[in-house]
Nucleic acid binder design. Structure first.
Lengths: 199, 199, 199, 199
DNA sequence: AATGAATGAGCATTCATTCAT
DNA sequence: CATGAATGAATGCTCATTCAT
């Protein structure tokens, strides 16, 4: 909703061009989500009802297309976190966010990849989006830590990593996602006196 | 370590053949580890110093080669777990195993893949090896649970999942593996009365 | 001559595409004719002055390319026969057709293969074309038999077989095609009373 | 049974070597007959119960192996013809030979290939065997022509060609071999006054 | 002599990307 | 701008032939 509609920084796209760009993005996300990165661009073009050329007009590279998807997703995630940080109970909010994210992304390979693979691509291209995401998450985390609900030694990056980890596990489909999230969330809580972790 | 040297069940391979087979396996593991499954067989052959034909003589398919790696690894992991299960302090053993595994495999993509992707391939081919692994891990887990050191509601499959998750995270390289393992191990411990998890 | 220009049944191909398709077909026919089915697709592409990809765009499989050639040929043969069947002297027409066909195809391995191998491929794909051919030939044969110029116990399929046989022989290059055709045509005539065949 | 047992002209092979050579030849003939020339040498070696090396020891090339089969066959055919030429009724003998050959070879792809493909290989290697064959057939033909049972303008080479042609047709399996042979044999008979061939 | 492991050129096919229409 | 045809490098795999054991 911000200003992510132009190809790079050119003039505002023509209406039909914008429509095509959006359509391709949407389809690509779905297709990648369903079948993985190996899907040929031709297939995406076909499903989007446009020619390959059109895909390449908007995204000069297959990687660029994927990065675009990632960026869009990361931005969304960051915004949600930001929202929750403004709420009253940051502790509850934090864990809810974590759980929600995992539940959500475990159903959506594209979102998963957006998080997981955000490091595997031309870093420069995703840098900004990752920052947005980490900032939102960071704000939420800070508050939760201030409230004593989360281990103080965790950084936003650590939490993101743990989130991706939970996603990977959830996606395996071999274990109840609830249990996984339970274990990890539990592990993120401050170490109570009654426990002897790692001892 | 057992008798995994012959192709399938034929006569013991000739000395040079066995050497080549081992060399290919070793190289393939490394190369796959470094660059992922996309590496051409030709590349593996080249690095192993043999012709493509030789690779194909020993492993009739690229998948077969990968499966062979997985199987070898899983077997190893299972055996280690089995060993530890026989030790005195199962709780300590369990967490040590978990930590060790993650630390180890985070340096070795092949081992990681062996664990992570063991479900993505011709199930039949890896079934046995996976069983060996789960059995070993299960024995260790049982003892640790009996000793009250691990949440009773976790199964061997859950633990394996958590291990793979930690591996994924550790491999990202963006977070201290120790911290990750710390969090997850902590989460696997029984819930102490002094804590209000998920509350 | 009819409408065999589109790939399957899509919109009429772009001018250049149609040109390429035709060129590939033509070259493939020649090359197959000269060197047999073993010729690599790359070779055909090279000789046609296009990339391999182009060949594969038009013919998704090597077999498909060959089938296309066969189909085109069979259609042509059937149409010629049909034409002659409409003529006045069916007997003369029949033998002329036979002779012509052999003479023609003995110079063109592709046409030969079209006839000879028409049974060796995905039957479904060539079924229709074969039918066209047999129908044309059948009409001509019927008339010739009615005129008492051809043994009444021969079917269109038999005649086709004999034609292919003559072609095989002619292609050997070791015997005068005229003599061969003479012998076989002679054998197809009704058995005169003055002869004691097989006696 | 003559002197076709040594590799080329070396010393008489050791007993086991001769056994191996014969076994390979026999198997190769069968396998080629069943599956065509495309069968890998490894397959032949396997079925013959020897190593590939052994095949190559006896036949330095795949082509050489095939030539050897051809040669053996041609010799046999020539000998049969020779035999019949010595009989009383050359006319009957000639047609019987023709029919017999077709019937026989249509069941044996190797024999068929031996006849059909005898021209497709290193001519030098098969020259002698072809000569033997043509001589035998020639003797039989001469007598039949002298008896007025066969068109005088046919040469042994022509007849061989017609035989191969009939084989090709018979092998198609789409027409009754008897009918084919009937037509061709009929065509080989002298032109009776009561007929107007090619007129 | 026999064996079968090793070799590597060769082939069908796919797919990211470019460019004429 | 959109289209989709053309391109060709890349890849998994086969198989004739050589050679160490």
């Amino acid at each position: 909703m911000t200003s992510a509609d132009s190809t790079v920084a050119g003039r505002p796209l023509r209406a039909d061009a914008r429509r095509n760009r959006a359509r391709v993005l949407e389809v690509a996300q779905q297709v990648f989500a369903e079948e993985g990165l190996a899907v040929p661009i031709d297939e995406i073009a076909r499903r989007a009802g446009v020619g390959v050329g059109t895909v390449y007009r908007h995204f000069p590279t297959k990687e660029a297309l994927f990065v675009a998807i990632i960026v869009e997703r990361l931005r969304g995630v960051g915004e949600v976190a930001q929202e929750l940080a403004k709420g009253p109970d940051a502790g509850k909010g934090f864990f809810a966010f974590f759980e929600h994210m995992v539940r959500d992304a475990s159903l959506n390979k594209a979102l998963f990849d957006a998080l997981a693979a955000s490091g595997s691509f031309n870093q420069e291209l995703t840098a900004e989006a990752r920052q947005v995401m980490l900032t939102g998450l960071g704000d939420l985390l800070d508050k939760a830590q201030a409230a004593g609900e989360v281990r103080a030694d965790l950084t936003a990056a650590d939490v993101k990593t743990l989130m991706v980890g939970c996603l990977t596990m959830a996606r395996q489909g071999t274990t109840d996602p609830g249990l996984i999230v339970g274990v990890v969330c539990d592990g993120m809580r401050p170490i109570s006196p009654g426990r002897t972790p790692e001892a």
